[in-house]
Each structure stands twice: as C-alpha cells, then as structure tokens.
Design a protein around this nucleic acid. Structure first.
Length: 474
RNA sequence: GACCCUAUCGUCCAGUGGUCUAGGACACUCCCCUUUCACGGGAGUAACACGGGUUCGAAUCCCGUUAGGGUCGCCA
C-alpha cells in the first residue's frame, strides 16, 4: 500500500477514511485574521465575507483577530482601516476589537504570555530547539500527510523530499526570533486553538502551509480545525492583484461611493453561486444558502465592470429618500448649496434613473441650484450653427408665458403644438429649450425639469440665454 | 528547482456520465422604444486548453502534457 506510510490525521476514523469533523455538538467558530497593513484588500474582504457567511449560516461565531505579531507592528490607524472596511461591508464580528469576548485579547501583540506557555509545552517534548543564532525552531516531521480540505478536497503532501530553490532540504520552521518576537505560523496556530476556532476559512496561499500547521497542532497535542482554502482573486487579465491595482482596496470603493451591499453582493459571486440565474441577491438569502463545500476551486478574476453594473442595480433599486441620503455627501462635497432637503429630493427625483455611480450626482444637478450656471461651449456652438434654433427658443418663451398651469403635461403639449405648427419634430424645439434653461445638450426629462425649475426661473433663464446668443459672434 | 492547487465564452458563474447542436450574467455589436443620455425589450458574436485512456456514451471519471496560480522567510 503506497499510502501506508502517510500519516493519517486527525484521529477520527470513519469507515477507514480520515475525517476531520470536530464533534457535531460544537458551535462553529470562524475567524478573520488580517494583519494591519494600512489597507483592506478585496481578497481579504472576501475571505472575511465567506467566514462571516458561514458563521451566520450555522448560527456560529465570527471572530476578528488582528495579526500584529508584535507591538512595533501595531498601528492604530491601520487597524481602524480594517474595522471601517468590515463595518462598511456589513460584516459584524461577535468577538474582537471594540467588541470584546471571552477569548481575548484579540491583538496578537497582547498575547505574548500565551505564546510563551505554548512554547514551553513544545520545549517539554523536545519538539523545538534553539539554533546557533538564538532563534527557536520547530523540528519539522517532514513526513507525508493527508488532510481533507472543504473546498479543495483531499490534499496529500509529501514534504519528505521538499527542497528550497537553492536545492537545500527545507529548513526547520522558525517559531520565535532571537529578539523574542513571534513568527506567524506558530502564533496563528496557537490563537486558533486558544480561541476555539473550528473552521479555518482562508486564502489558498495558505494551502501549502497547512501541513506545517497541522504538525504544530499535533506536536501540541491538539485537534486541528477543519480547513477551507478559498481561491485567490486575480486581476481580470489573470495577473496577481497587488495593492496598487484598481479596485484592490475596499477603501477605494468607500471613497468612490459604491453601495456597500453591491460590493458585498459582487464579492459573494466570486467563487460562489446560488446555482440559478440570478445575480442580485439579498444577503439574508446568501446566508441561508451559503455552503463552503460549493465554493469554486478556480481562482476568480476581478471584473470591475460587473461590480459597477451591480452597483447601478442597487442604486436603481433605492427609493428616493434612500437615494437622497446617499447623494447628500456628494452634493456637499461638490459645494452645492441645495437649500432644503425637500428641494434637493425634488431635483434628485428627476435624475435618479440616470445615475450609475453616486459621484456622478453633482454634475447632474448643479445647475438646478445656481443661476450662474455655465454654458457648455459645444452645445452653444451647436445652437448657434442653426439660426432657427434661436428663433424657436423665442417662440417657446412666448408660448410658455401664456401657459395657465406650469406643469410637465402643459409644457409638453405647448411645445408639441408649436412643433406641429412649424411642421417640424418636437426635438427641434426640445434641444434649444434644454440649452435655454440648463446650458447643456443633455439632461433629465425636459418637461419635468421645467416643472421643478418653476415658471419664474425657467423664463428668466431663457431670457438670459437669448440675450447671450444674440450678442454672440456668429 | 521541489511540493501543492487549478483549467467551460474576454470575465464571473451553471453544468457533478446521456435531456449539451453547452445555459445565464457583465462587456461588446445590431435592432426596437425614446426629447438627449440612460433604463427597458429583442437579436447576435463568443468557451468545454491539448493528447491519451475508461465507458454503449465524457465538459463531466483516470493518466499525461501544457498553461496559470500558490508555497518552500527570523513577512503576515
């Protein structure tokens, strides 16, 4: 039997097959353990999301632990970026920073005494030794090992002949530096054990490290958790997504005004699927249907355009008051004095259906809130190139002055009547009219826009435009 | 270099031996709707990496090749 010398692990034997299931009675405890690098990567965000989904799906606990192995690595602002990003995505943690819990502290920089305790256990069994440089190393068993991954299936690794790029045998893993600071692999295992983590859902970049981690659990006499290694997120062209790539940071979505639920929805679809044809999904439904066993094994390529599309879908689905609330920060950032929320809401109702990204909003509404709006040079040249356009604008001004009730329907019929009398298409009047009141060639529905503007302002604008056009050099 | 993972339209997913002349979505092209721009509706282009097996039958199972990714740190 070729597999006979493979170390079977852990020790639950069911029908002769190595199983990983922890006792069924235990509550699921998963964690997201980022290091505070100053950004929250979308790949990390998806890892957090999948952990969160699994915790919510099983009624378990989602724990946040900050991997700042030592105090020098700890930067408050960098931690805050992670907390902000997770909260923005709606991923709330049951234990961790600012929340507390019974398994703290949740910063590795504060867990030194715990690590020391576990290191002592390793010393007691002679599983570690101090090398000539003063670092503590773990004697790697270097035996073949098999484990079950919830995503990747059975993984069998034979590290007995594993060598480095230089052709040397793989060195023993360092556990603690000579200066006393701790190494990731060791503290990661200790923390997961101490915090009672039952399922480790993490990026596939850790798949090859897992045997070492399992050997550490064994040396410590502990039962390892189950593992689920989810594929990495790459750029659309397949290259590795670095911190600099567009869309790599959750912060960039926050800054660009994405709808959090849309980004979260997109992330759900990267490697997981509801198995039907829908794309836009309520998070509650994803929670009930989520199953790590059905996560794709293939690396996902990040498609910002599809994310944008979903974002637009979420904006379209907002009701007007939600849309207004989401728009206000952008309006204010652009320095638009919008007066009352009521008047703003009225204007936003005109343009909501046009918007795909929140930062576009100010450019669509600015001319509603100032009488000194600029004329778009291109649109102006176009009007001037057709002398009859100016005449039509004059006709419109006259007709509108006669209008009894200033509403969209009345304005529309007045304009269409004029067009009919002149024997031309309504567009011949609409274009000059739009330019006359907005200085542009495109915008929301003309009639509704006029209604919102009101008779006085609309007519005054037309007069002003007419004056401008008539003094213009031809 | 060694070890590990992966391989369906450009991209994300569906497909778990026959219902696949492979389905949906994004993007792209065209048409319709329309006051502009969008939305919406309709149509279209486009994929099972390659080679061997297994099988009556393979996108689906096995092996190999190729390609991509990952790990081999006193980074996390």
């Amino acid at each position: 039997m070729e597999d006979a010398d493979f170390q079977e692990f852990p020790l639950f034997m069911v029908h002769g097959f190595t199983q990983f299931d922890p006792p069924m009675s235990s509550e699921v405890r998963v964690r997201f353990a980022p290091s505070p690098t100053g950004m929250l990567h979308v790949g990390g965000a998806r890892t957090a999301l999948f952990n969160w989904l699994y915790a919510r799906h099983t009624g378990g606990k989602f724990i946040l632990r900050i991997e700042d192995t030592d105090r020098a690595r700890h930067v408050d602002a960098a931690v805050q970026v992670i907390l902000d990003g997770l909260r923005w995505l709606g991923l709330d943690w049951d234990e961790g920073p600012e929340v507390g819990g019974n398994h703290g502290p949740y910063f590795q920089s504060e867990r030194g005494s715990i690590y020391q305790r576990y290191l002592d256990r390793l010393c007691a069994t002679n599983a570690v030794y101090t090398d000539p440089d003063g670092a503590v190393r773990f004697r790697l068993p270097r035996k073949p090992l098999i484990f079950e991954d919830m995503v990747c299936g059975t993984i069998s690794v034979d590290r007995s002949k594993s060598i480095t790029p230089g052709g040397e045998p793989e060195p023993d893993m360092t556990v603690r530096r000579a200066d006393g600071s701790w190494i990731f692999h060791f503290v990661n295992v200790v923390d997961d054990a101490e915090m009672g983590i039952t399922h480790v859902i993490r990026g596939e970049d850790h798949l090859s490290n897992t045997p070492k981690h399992i050997e550490l659990y064994q040396a410590l006499g502990l039962t390892p958790p189950r593992f689920a290694h989810i594929p990495l997120i790459l750029n659309k062209d397949g290259s590795k997504m670095s911190k600099r790539d567009t869309g790599a940071s959750v912060g960039s979505y926050m800054d660009l005004g994405y709808v959090p639920a849309a980004v979260r929805n997109y992330l759900c679809l990267l490697g997981w699927s509801p198995k039907d044809d829908r794309e836009k999904l309520e998070i509650a439904e994803v929670v009930t249907r989520f199953d790590p066993g059905h996560i794709n094994r293939k690396a996902a390529h990040f498609d910002l355009e599809k994310c944008n599309w979903l974002n637009a879908q979420y904006i379209a689905a907002m009701d007007l008051s939600a849309f207004t609330a989401a728009s206000v920060p952008w309006i204010e950032k652009a320095g638009i004095a919008y007066g009352s929320l009521e008047s703003l809401t009225l204007v936003l109702g005109l343009i909501k259906e046009k918007i795909k990204q929140l930062p576009e909003v100010p450019a669509w509404v600015d001319y509603f809130f100032t009488e000194s709006f600029p004329y778009d040079p291109e649109a102006r040249a176009k009007i001037l190139s057709k002398p009859e356009s100016v005449h039509r604008l004059q006709q419109l001004a006259e007709a509108w002055k006669q209008i009894a009730t200033w509403d969209a329907a009345g304005l529309e019929s007045a304009l269409k009547q004029l067009a009919a009398e002149s024997g031309c298409k309504p567009a011949e009047y609409i274009l000059p009219a739009r330019f006359g009141v907005s200085g542009r060639s495109s915008g929301p529905s003309l009639y509704h826009m006029l209604e919102v503007l009101g008779r006085e302002r609309a007519l005054a604008r037309v007069e002003r435009t007419l004056a401008d056009l008539q003094t213009a050099p031809h």
